[in-house]
Design a protein around this nucleic acid. Sequence first.
DNA 1: CTCATTTGACCTGG
DNA 2: CCAGGTCAAATGAG
Length: 262
Amino acid sequence: METVYGNGGSRLVVTELSHIKDLAMQLQEHLDGSHDRCKHLTSQIFSLTERSIGLITSSAGLICGRKRSAGSATPSPLSNVSDVLFKSTKKSELQENDDEASGEGEGVWPVDDGHSWRKYGQKPILGGKYPRSYYRCRHRHSQGCKAMKKVQRANEDPTLFDVMYFGTHTCVERTEAAAAVQLAVPAREHDPDAHCLLQSLSGSLTVKTEGLAAATEPEPQCLNATCTTPFCPSSASPVSWFLSPDIADEFIDIDVISSFFE
DNA sequence: CTCATTTGACCTGG
DNA sequence: CCAGGTCAAATGAG
């Protein structure tokens, strides 16, 4: 499957952004000094677009150069942020087949959160068309990390996943993917522009700035962020993120990029 | 050989 | 008793 970033998709986005940049420049020229506010806004658009291009190109390089670590027979969903934003699926053919058998074959897995998870169980849920999968942090034993998550495909829309996080990551692991998220998502209090930029860039994906999966309450709050275009690889792979209220504020909400281009 | 997933059995709370 | 959650042996991929 063609990926947004792997096979020319990034170039397309960069081209679009360059176009926007040009338009902003033209608009700025036509405002000739009379509308300071407008000029300010257009210059913001201009700079943000430039930064978008920079982020995309740097992220694409980082992400495309990365390979899945060996030893994983069937990659854990949500375990690589690289796949998060830019790849459609990393499942092996076997996994695809297995998933078809278990009702998880269609669509792609939800985005990754940058942490390494190990699946320890799967159960069919009453009233649910699809089984619920249970994951623990890979460093549970080595580092006593208590982070866990449950992943379940939505009944009404099999391309949509409900991801619930429990516990806090105490492991010191910081995967490249997590680092990539941090790289691409500066803390908003430090860089409000970047926040705006990301709001423009991403496909409604909710991304935490750091300490991913830090939920602590057993009653998650649904932020109902759906990841669609363009960072979710096949535009039909929205993801719902269920997060604890106490960490919800730490997340950066990102609007749909399509509206940015409209 | 190592490590991750699968899956049936078991445990626990309502 | 039932549903959800967890355990652990079996299995498979690299």
